[in-house]
Design a protein around this nucleic acid. Structure first.
Lengths: 135, 135
DNA sequence: TTTAACCTTGTCGTTAACGTAAAGGTTGAC
DNA sequence: GTCAACCTTTACGTTAACGACAAGGTTAAA
């Protein structure tokens, strides 16, 4: 059981961020003392890592909330699971679309790199045998 | 040559957005009338599409500004091109990292989908022959 | 030349995701 | 039991990326 400051440090965020996430429904302290102190366990740490990754990929907290909610669907009633399934599927599609967009951007980038390299070797180092593109 | 309203509609954004992008240095009208009217051509339309894609992938306008700047490096001096090259390369790395994160998320999602489907078929439809996962 | 439809530059408002300081309780090692 | 280090809630501030007026100028078709 970590206090908020400890787990925050472990996760690389601030306590403020944790309270904010709680307020937005992304996490919950595993225990709360009578005085109101929040205590967390390693599960929360795992969730925070997941949040970090998904954020880095461009999801909003709202979207992330949905996604991580899905991973704790085990105790939910049967009917909820079917809805979950539908959502998971559409989320999968979104992810696929983002991946292909990034891959397209990647291709364009590579092209641009080659072009720039060509121009460099033509203008800058006339007559030199260059090693060609690395990628 | 489109007026701002026309190109905005084509690009699926508002004129306000175009002015904002201009202010942030992402685009420039190809011509400006003496009265101050902005006129754009198809090149700008292409850039706007690119911006849309990169935004959808989670880049900020500031990052996007850098990226699209690179694609108009043709007229820049030689020395600038080498810096460009370095940046392009690091940007490529970032993209690769994002892609792999998304692919990881995708795998986890698929697992979760299978789990949910299993639980559904076990609890809900006892004795039924289910078709198994689709993916 | 009139007029609807568009454009201009402000300026203020809004949402997301926190940062930051204020004023005051809590803990736990000594 | 004291005190530094931590925690609480409350509340105002901030950046990004626009939206939504307001007040007035421009265009181009009829």
């Amino acid at each position: 059981m970590y206090k908020i400051g400890e787990i925050a440090k472990q996760a690389g965020v601030t306590p403020r961020t944790l309270r904010y996430y709680e307020q937005r429904g992304l996490i919950t302290p595993s225990q709360v003392s009578t005085a109101g102190y929040r205590y967390y366990d390693d599960d929360t740490l795992a969730i925070l890592t997941r949040i970090r990754n998904l954020k880095h990929v461009g999801l909003t907290l709202e979207e992330i909330k949905d996604v991580i909610g899905l991973y704790f669907t085990l105790k939910k009633p049967l009917e909820a699971k079917e809805k979950t399934l539908v959502y998971l599927d559409s989320h999968l599609n979104e992810i696929n679309s983002k991946i292909s967009m990034l891959q397209k951007a990647k291709l364009e980038l590579k092209e641009q790199i080659q072009l720039t390299q060509q121009r460099l070797s033509q203008l800058g180092v006339k007559g030199q045998k260059n090693g060609g593109p690395k990628n």
